[in-house]
Design a protein around this nucleic acid. Structure first.
Length: 211
DNA sequence: ATCATGATGTTCT
DNA sequence: GAACATCATGATG
C-alpha cells in the first residue's frame, strides 16, 4: 500500500463498472482510537432512479440526499434499528448511484477493530456491511465525508486490484425489488466474503387470534 | 455446516 | 403502520 488516494474521477462513472473496480482497494478510517483499513472483497451496485432496490428510487429525501451529490463521498444509513451500512457515491453530481461496501479484510488497525468487535473472529471482523462499519468505526457522523481528500479522516487507498479472473457477480443480498439484477460483486475464494442470503419478509411479531 | 428467531428504531407512506 | 441493502445466538446434523 503506497498511500495513494483514489481520484474523484475513479468514482465518476457507471456504478456497475466502478463497483467491481473497487475490489482489492482499501477503505481506511482514522478516529481518536486509531486507524483501521480494510481491503474490499465484496460490494454491491445500486443505480438510483432506475433501480427499485436503490434508496434513491423514489427521489431525494433527507436520508439519501448525499447520494444525489458529487461522487467520492460516503452515504451512511441506519437500518434494522441497530446497524449502519456505508456506500460510496458514484456518477456525476445530480445523479444518485452508489456502491454498498459489503465486506473486507482488515489489513491494518486490527487491534482497534477487535476492540470494537470483541466477540468476533478475525475473519468475521468486517464480513458483512454492518460489521464492516463497526470495525471501521463508521456511524451517522461519517455520513457525507469526502473519501478523495488526501489526509482526510476517511479515504479509499489504491491497493492491488482484484484479479479479473477471480471476480464473480450475482444477485444482491437481502433485497426485495429487482432481484434479477446481478450487481453483487465479490472475489471468489476469499474467506471474508459474506454468505449470500435471499430476502425474507419479516413476519409480524404480534398475532392476536385469541380474544 | 445450516436454519430459525429476536433485537431494535428510523424512515417514508 | 410497515418495511427495512443485518447480526448474534441457539438448536440441530
Amino acid at each position: 500500500m503506497d498511500g495513494a488516494v483514489l481520484s474523484r474521477e475513479f468514482f465518476d462513472g457507471p456504478v456497475e463498472e466502478v463497483a467491481p473496480a473497487l475490489l482489492g482497494h482499501v477503505i481506511s478510517h482514522r478516529t481518536p482510537e486509531g486507524e483501521v483499513a480494510a481491503r474490499l472483497t465484496e460490494v454491491e451496485a445500486y443505480a438510483g432512479p432506475l433501480d427499485p432496490a436503490s434508496h434513491a428510487y423514489r427521489g431525494p429525501t433527507p436520508r439519501n440526499e448525499v447520494m444525489f451529490g458529487p461522487p467520492g463521498h460516503v452515504y451512511v444509513y441506519f437500518t434494522y434499528g441497530m446497524h449502519f451500512c456505508m456506500n460510496l457515491v458514484c456518477g456525476p453530481d445530480g445523479t444518485s448511484m452508489a456502491v454498498l461496501l459489503r465486506a473486507g479484510e482488515i489489513i491494518s488497525g486490527e487491534d482497534v477493530a477487535r476492540a470494537r468487535r470483541p466477540r468476533s473472529t478475525v475473519r468475521d471482523l468486517a464480513r458483512g456491511p454492518a460489521r464492516l462499519c463497526q470495525a471501521l468505526g463508521v456511524a451517522r457522523e461519517q455520513n457525507g465525508l469526502d473519501v478523495c481528500a488526501p489526509g482526510g479522516a476517511m479515504t479509499v487507498l489504491r491497493g492491488e486490484p482484484a484479479d479479473p479472473a477471480l471476480i464473480r457477480n450475482g444477485p444482491r443480498t437481502g433485497v426485495n425489488g429487482a432481484k434479477e439484477i446481478p450487481w453483487r460483486f465479490w472475489i471468489e475464494g476469499d474467506p471474508t466474503v459474506s454468505p449470500y442470503r435471499p430476502h425474507v419478509p419479516r413476519q409480524r411479531r404480534k398475532i392476536t387470534t385469541e380474544g
